[in-house]
Design a protein around this nucleic acid. Structure first.
Lengths: 200, 200, 200, 200
DNA sequence: TATGAATGAGTCTTCATTCAT
DNA sequence: TATGAATGAAGACTCATTCAT
C-alpha cells in the first residue's frame, strides 16, 4: 500500500477509536488490530500514540478554521445573520460528519498530555478572542449592550460546545442543522444585543 | 484512626489528586502516599480506584443539588432574578471552593469508565430536564418566547460549564462571583425571554 | 521474603547472568526467571537493568579496593615483594571466586551505556594513576630505570587483565594463585627495575 | 555499482559505525543510512548483521597476521630487536590507522554472539601460541630465564592490548609509534630475559 | 485494622529480517 | 539488482490488585 494511503488508514482507525473510547482507553494494540496492520507498521508512520492524536487535532483545527468565514458587509452579500448561520452550520456539519473528531475536540484538557492539552486550549483561546473582538465591535457600533465581553464570548463557546456534545449522544439529523444553528444564534444574539435591536 | 475518618481522609486526598491531575494520571500509589497509608489499607476501604471516584462524584452531585433551590413566587420572597442569581452563586461558590471536584465534574464522559460516565451524563440530564421544565413553564406564562426549549436548556448548561471551566484556569476571585452570575443570567434570560420582558 | 534478602537474591542472579552472557544478552526476563520472581517484583527493587549493573559494579570496585593495601616499609613488615604478591593474590582470589563479577570487570566500555562505561573507565584510570605514582617513586629512589611511567603502568594493568581473562576461560585452580601472582610480579618488576636491582 | 564495490562500501560504513558505537549500538538502519542504500539491498550482500561483523573480523585478522614477520637470524638481517620492533610498529600502525577495526578487536568476547566470540578467542589463542613458542625457544637458547611461558605470553598480549586500548582513547600520534613499540618491548624483554642478557 | 511484598496482565517501543514489486 | 513497506518477536516498564503476616 502507498505510504500516504497507509498513513491515512491508520489516522482513520485511530480517530474512530479515540472518538469512541477516548484517548487513554485506546491502545496502540487497539489501533493496529482495527487497521489490520502489524505492530511495527504503526511505528513506521508515527512516532507514538501522541503523534497520531496531535495530527488528528491539527487537521481538525485547520478544517474548522476553514469553515469560518469573516462576515462581509458588502451591499450584495447575504445578511449578517445569514452569514453567521452559515458559519455555524459549516462547523456543525463538519463535526457531526466526523463524530470521532468532535469527540476529540470536546475531550477537555484533563487526560491529555501537556502538549496536546495546550494545543486544544490555544485553539479555544483563539476562537474566544475572535468572538470577543466581534462583540466589542458590536458595542462600538451601538448594537451590543454593555456587558462583560469576555464572559459573553465564553457563553457563545459554551452554548456551541454543549449543543455539539448533545449531538454526539443523539442520532444524527442533518436536516435540522440549520434550525439548530438558528436557535443557537438567536439565543446568543438576543442575549447580548441592545433591546429592540435584532440581528440584521 | 476511626474507620469513618480514614475513609474521609482517603477521599480528600484522592479528590485533590483527581482534581489536580485527572483521573488517569492519578495512581493508587499517588493516593496512598499522599494520604500516608499502606497499599493494603486503601483496599480495606474501597473496592478499587473507580469506587473512590464514584463516591466523590456522588457526593458532589448531592452537594450541588442542595445548592439549587426552587424559585419561590411568594409575595414576600426575593425577586425571581434574585433567587436565580442566588442559585448560580451557590453552585459557583461550591465549585470554586472545591476546584478538585469541579475538575472532576468538567471532565467529560470520555476517559472515564462506562459507569462513571453514565453517572455524570445522568446528572447533566437531570439538570437539563429541570431547566427545560422551567423554560416551558415560562412559555406557558407568556414570559418566554417560542423556541426549542431543549436547545435553550443545553445553552444554559453550556454557558455555565464554560464559565466554570474558565474559572478553573484563572485565579480565584470570589468577590466577583455574584457579578459573574448576574452576567450569565442576563445573557441567558435575554436570550429566551419575549421582547420587552425582563426577568423580574 | 525480607526486602534485603530479595535484593541480594536478584543481584546474585543478575551477576551470574551478566557474567555468563554479558550485559546485553541478559534480559530482565532472564533475570526474573532465574530468580523465580514476578516481573513487577524486579522493579520493586531496581529502577531498571542498568541500576542492577551499576550496583554490582560499585560493589565490585569497593571490594577490589579493599583488597589493595599500601606497601609498608616498617622494619618489622613483610618484604615489599611479599606485600605486593599479597595484594595481587587478594585481587585474584576475589575475582576468581566471583567469576560473574570478573567478567563484568573485563567487559570493556563498548556495549555498556555511557554511565557504566564511565564508571569502569574511572576505576581503571584510578588504578593506573596509583601504579604510575609508585613507579615514579621507584625512579626517585633509584630503583626503577628511566622509562615512560605511563606506559609502564598500562603494561602492569594489561598483564593483570590478560591473566584474569585467561583464568575466566580455564578451570579454577586456587592452589596456584600465589604462583601466578609471583610470576606476574616478576615479569613486571624485572621489566622496569634497574639492572642488577631486584624487588626486595 | 559493481557488486564488489557495493560490498566494500557496506563493509566500510559498517566498520566505521561498529568502531564508533560498538556492535550492539549499531543498527542495520544506521548502516544503510550511512551507506545510502535501501534496506533490502543490504541483505542482498550479507546474510545478516553478524555476517558483516565476521567478515570485518576475518579481514582484520588476515591483515594483522600479514604484519607479523618471523624473526630472521641471517647474518645480514637487522637485529632481532629491530625486527621485533618492526613487527610491533606494523601492528600498531595498522590498528591506529583503523580505529574502527581496533575497537572491534578489543571488544571482548562478552557481548558478541558465540561464533564471533570464538573467532576472536581463536585469534588471540594463536598469537599466544606463537609467542609462547618463541619464549620456549629463547629458554632453550639460554637467553630467557626460567619462567611460566604461558603466563609470559599472556603478559605480552596483555601489555599490547592495554597500550592499544589507551591509544583508542587518546589522540593519534603516529610519530611516537616506534617509541611506544620500543618501550613495550623493553619492558617485556627485560621481564623475561636472563639477568645481564639484553635483546640483541 | 494495617501492612507492604508480590503479582502479572497490559502497554509501549525497537529492530533484525522478509518479500512483493 | 534495487527498493522500501511490512512484519512480529522480543524487550522494557507500569500499575491496579491480591494476600500472607
Amino acid at each position: 500500500m502507498e505510504p500516504k494511503e497507509r498513513r491515512e488508514q491508520i489516522l482513520e482507525h485511530a480517530a474512530f477509536l479515540f472518538g469512541k473510547n477516548g484517548y487513554h482507553a485506546t491502545s496502540i494494540t487497539n489501533i493496529i488490530e482495527s487497521a489490520g496492520i502489524a505492530r511495527g507498521t504503526f511505528y513506521l508512520y508515527f512516532k507514538n500514540k501522541r503523534a497520531v492524536f496531535e495530527e488528528l487535532l491539527d487537521a481538525l483545527v485547520i478544517q474548522i478554521n476553514s469553515k469560518i468565514k469573516t462576515v462581509e458587509m458588502d451591499p450584495g452579500a447575504p445578511s449578517p445573520r445569514e452569514q453567521l448561520v452559515d458559519n455555524i452550520v459549516g462547523v456543525l456539519e463538519l463535526l457531526t460528519k466526523n463524530r470521532a473528531l468532535l469527540s476529540i475536540l470536546l475531550e477537555r484538557a484533563v487526560g491529555l498530555d501537556q502538549r496536546s492539552a495546550k494545543k486544544l486550549a490555544d485553539f479555544y483561546e483563539k476562537i474566544s478572542h475572535t468572538i470577543d473582538g466581534s462583540i466589542q465591535l458590536g458595542q462600538q457600533m451601538g448594537l451590543v449592550r454593555s456587558c462583560n465581553t469576555k464572559m459573553a464570548s465564553l457563553a457563545a463557546i459554551g452554548v456551541l460546545k454543549e449543543v455539539l456534545h448533545d449531538m454526539l449522544r443523539t442520532p444524527e439529523d442533518n436536516q435540522r442543522l440549520r434550525e439548530v444553528a438558528g436557535e443557537v444564534l438567536d439565543i446568543f444574539s438576543r442575549g447580548v444585543l441592545i433591546d429592540g435591536v435584532s440581528l440584521p
